[in-house]
Design a protein around this nucleic acid. Structure first.
Lengths: 256, 256
DNA sequence: GTATTTGTTCTGCATTGCAGAACTTCGTGC
DNA sequence: GCACGAAGTTCTGCAATGCAGAACAAATAC
C-alpha cells in the first residue's frame, strides 16, 4: 500500500481545529452546534468531540437548555493570570521598536503619576545622538505630547487642578485653551507637542488603555523641528495612535 | 494482529494534553521547555509540538532569548470576550457599587463552579490597600460567605459530597454542622463567614437567583474583623440580602 | 577544548482522530 | 396525538495523524 506521506506532518491538526472552534465562539457567542460546525467548516461530530475537553477545561460552556456554546470562566482565569505576569514595559517593547523602525525617530513610553509623566522606556534610532537617558525621569503633563494624550482621558477636575508652568513660549498656560486642546486630542486620537516643552522639539503622543479601559500610559515619537515638520506630524499621528492601540489590545483593553 | 480497541476512544487526547500544558503555564509562568515537559509529564518533543499552535493562537508566547513559556495576550482577549457576554456582571455592577457606597467595604461577585466559587467582579472602597485582584480566582464554597449563600440553595446531596477542608480554626469541617448552618442561612436570607476562610476577615454574603430561580451566583461584603464586628454583621446582612434581591429581579427571577 | 544540558528535527509504528451514517431527541405544524 | 423535520449524539471502519524515542544541533558550563 502506497501511503503518500504528506509533506506537513505533526502539525497538530486537531488542536488547531479546536482553537479555531474556540475562536469562533469568542467572536460569536451563543451559536448552536450546527451553526458552530458550519462556521468552522467542520462536521458536527468533530465539533462535538473537540468541544468536550474545552468544556471540561471551562474554556467553553454550553447552555443546558438551548445547547448554545459560550465562553466559559476558565477564560478569565487565564486572562487574569496573564495580567498578573504583565509588565507594561515588556509588552510595549515590541511595538515601540516597530514604531521606531517605521518612523526612524525616538520613541518614548511613559506612565502617569499625577501631575507628572514618568519615562519608563525609550527606543532610539541611532546611537549617535546624545544619550542623557530620560528613563526614570519625570516631565510635566501639560506641556508634553504623552502628557496631553493622557490628560485628554482624565476627569475634567483633575485637569483643572494642574499648575500650568511655562516651559517655552509655546507652552499652553491657559486652562481654557488646554481644555479645547484636549478635546481636539480626543477627536484626533493623538496629541501634539509643538515646541511646548523644549524649543527645538516636536512630539506626537497617543494614549494607552489598560484592561479597565483607563488611560494610565502613553507612547510618543519625538524629534527636532527640522525633521518633524507640521506636515510630518499629520503623518505620524495615525501611526503613533495605531501603535498605542496595539499595545492597549495586548493589555486587554476591551475597546481597542 | 490483535489490536485491543481501548474502551476510551475519541477522547481527543492530544487536545487534552495541550490544555494541560496551557494550564501548567498558567500556574507557573516562565518555565523552560524541559521544565514544562517535566511538569506535564510529557516528552519534550510532544510539548514542543503541542505548543506551536498555542503560540500561533497567542494563548502562549515564548521568550525569544530564554525560551521560557508565558501566557500570550490571546488569553486576555478570551477573558474580556467572556466578561462582555456575561450579563450577570453588567447587571450586578450597579448594585455592587451602590452596596459598596452604602457600607464602605469591599464587595465581591462570584459564580458557582462546584465545588468552588469563582470571583468575577470586585468593587473596592478605597484604592489604598489594593490587594492582588481576586477576579478570575477561585475559592472554597464551604468556608466563604458567598459559597455558603449558594450552597444553602443547592440539593442536600451536592452539599454532602463536599470535602470540608479546614482553612482556619473556625472553618466548619463537620457536615452535620454545615447542614444546620445552611438551614440558618435560608432562614436569615444571608450567610456569614466568621473568620472561616481567613483569620482576620469577616464576610456577609447573599444568594442571587437567576431567571429560572436557580442560585448560581452570590454577592458579599468583606472586611477586617476590626471593622466588621458581630454587631455590624447583623446590620450588613439585610443590606446585602436586599442588594442580592435587586440583582435577582434584574435577572428575571420570578420569586424576588 | 570537552562535557553536559537544553532545544529541535526526524521517523517507524499504531493509536487516535476523522467523518459519514445511524440513531435519538426535541420541537413544530396539522 | 401523530408525523415530520431539524438538531444533537453515538458509533465505527479506515488510515492519517500524533506519539515518543533517538539522533542531531546549539547553547552553556566546566
Amino acid at each position: 500500500m502506497l501511503t503518500l506521506v504528506s509533506p506537513e506532518r505533526n502539525q497538530s491538526a486537531s488542536l488547531r481545529r479546536a482553537l479555531t472552534v474556540l475562536d469562533h465562539v469568542r467572536e460569536r457567542s451563543g451559536l448552536s452546534l450546527t451553526q458552530l460546525a458550519e462556521a468552522a467548516e467542520l462536521p458536527k461530530s468533530t465539533v462535538l468531540r473537540l468541544t468536550a475537553p474545552l468544556i471540561e477545561a471551562r474554556l467553553l460552556e454550553r447552555d443546558r437548555r438551548t445547547g448554545a456554546y459560550r465562553l466559559g470562566h476558565g477564560t478569565i482565569r487565564l486572562g487574569q493570570a496573564y495580567l498578573a505576569t504583565l509588565d507594561l514595559r515588556a509588552v510595549a517593547a515590541e511595538e515601540s521598536y516597530r514604531l521606531m523602525s517605521e518612523v526612524r525617530e525616538t520613541v518614548h513610553l511613559v506612565v502617569y503619576d499625577p501631575p507628572h509623566v514618568v519615562y519608563i522606556d525609550k527606543v532610539e534610532n541611532e546611537a549617535n545622538v546624545r544619550m542623557a537617558s530620560r528613563i526614570g525621569s519625570r516631565g510635566p503633563a501639560h506641556s508634553t505630547a504623552v502628557g496631553k494624550a493622557i490628560l485628554a482621558w482624565q476627569p475634567a477636575e483633575a485637569v483643572a487642578e494642574l499648575v500650568l508652568d511655562p516651559r517655552t513660549k509655546h507652552t499652553i498656560i491657559d486652562h481654557e485653551r488646554l481644555r479645547a486642546e484636549l478635546a481636539a486630542v480626543r477627536r484626533r486620537g493623538y496629541a501634539v507637542d509643538d515646541r511646548e516643552n523644549e524649543p527645538e522639539v516636536r512630539c506626537v503622543g497617543a494614549p494607552i488603555f489598560n484592561h479597565n479601559d483607563a488611560v494610565t500610559a502613553a507612547i510618543s515619537v519625538s524629534g527636532l523641528t527640522s525633521r518633524i515638520t507640521a506636515a510630518r506630524v499629520r503623518e505620524l499621528g495615525p501611526l503613533v495612535a495605531e501603535a498605542a492601540s496595539r499595545i492597549s489590545r495586548k493589555l486587554g483593553s476591551p475597546s481597542r
